[in-house]
Simulated scan of single mutants.
Amino acid sequence: MSDLLFRPLEADEFDLFHSYGPLPASGVGARNLPFEELGYRHDWVWVALRDGEVVARAAFWGPPGHEHPFSLDWFDLGVGPDRIEVGAALLRAAYAELVTPEYATPSGERPDYHLFLPSDWRERPDALADATDRIEAAEKAGLRRFVERLNLRWIPEYGLPPRSTRLTFTPAADDAPVLEVLAGLFTDSLDAYARRDLDQHGLRRAAEVILEEIADFPGGRDRWRLAHDRAGKVVGVVMPTRNSRFATIGYMGVLPEHRGNGYADDLVAEALHIFAAEGEPEVRDNTDVGNAPMAASFARIGYRITGRRMILA
């Protein structure tokens, strides 16, 4: 370990990052866009060097204009016998420099690690081994398993579901009613982030965190809708938006007293109709593996699973 150097890239050193090899053939860590299109800052991209050769690498990501990275979502740790220790040391060095005393993002006290995985990663020995190496190194660096999520995709060719005939939707232009619904969604929530926000911030602030985070997406809030039943009662909210690359449902949910009626399908369908009317070529979403009702709703609407994501925090 004493012969290793850990450091971020200089502005003209992305070729050094790409000199790493070999890439895992299992698909573990693979992204759906080329590295150059993902918008990494050079000073948030780290390498471990041994005799000038890149033996491990890590790339942190944050939205344009933000002072701190939100996530670690590219991490390769080599194939040598000391790969776990090298990878862990690289992460410790990077986190020590990037997570300064003033670090703050809506999602937590340090960047989460997002490990992108094939949907069948547990059934394939090569994928399981590659994933296990990365998880073990991250855990040695102080991160802990938080949640596993399904990555989902919908495109118009899959078929546009029928629009709801039992709910009406109104623009969610004002903060107050949206915050009221968001706070109500925390009751018995199956979403790991919602439960974490509730534990860390309390009910009111947890709702504000969601509102602030989704409002900060480049897609804005013009597409957000409150859903009402035939009696005019609010049953939930859906917040279609765009991230830096794709259309996505930033957040959605049905209030506890209205759950069990299949309203989630209506909310997702409304979002897809909004996106389709605007000509969006695809929509990408995700949900916790443990949130079976939401996963089932996405499946009924026509989404397809593109992979999984293990998040360590």
Rank of each mutant, 00 (worst) to 15 (best):
E212T: 13
R204C: 02
A11C: 06
W61Q: 00
D51F: 05
A264H: 04
H42Y: 15
H273D: 06
E136S: 10
E270F: 08
Y113F: 15
G87C: 06
M294P: 05
R124Y: 02
M252A: 14
E102T: 12
H68Y: 15
L49V: 02
L5T: 15
D216K: 04
R308F: 01
P156G: 05
P240D: 06
A131C: 10
E85I: 00
L152G: 07
L33S: 09
E37A: 15
A58E: 00
A277V: 04
R308G: 11
P240Q: 06
L143Q: 13
V47S: 04
A296Y: 02
Q200S: 11
A138V: 01
S119G: 11
L179W: 06
L152H: 09
A247C: 13
A25Q: 14
F217E: 14
E280K: 05
N291D: 11
G262E: 09
Y303P: 07
A313V: 12
L115H: 03
A48E: 04
F169R: 10
R163C: 07
L152F: 04
W121P: 04
D222Y: 06
P118V: 10
E13N: 12
D120E: 14
E36D: 14
L160D: 10
D175Y: 09
D197W: 13
A58G: 00
G260F: 06
A271Y: 09
M294S: 15
L160W: 07
I135M: 14
L77C: 11
E139R: 13
E102G: 13
L312H: 05
F75S: 00
E53N: 08
I210R: 12
G236C: 03
F217M: 13
R245A: 11
P63I: 00
H273F: 07
W74N: 12
L49C: 03
L185F: 06
W46Q: 00
L38F: 07
L312V: 08
L182G: 08
V235N: 04
G78K: 08
F14D: 14
T100C: 01
G260W: 02
D222H: 13
S26C: 08
R7M: 05
R221T: 15
D266A: 12
W121R: 10
G262L: 04
F116Q: 05
N151A: 13
F217L: 15
D15A: 15
G29N: 03
D188N: 11
H18V: 07
A88E: 00
L143V: 00
L9G: 02
P63Q: 09
L211Q: 11
L9K: 01
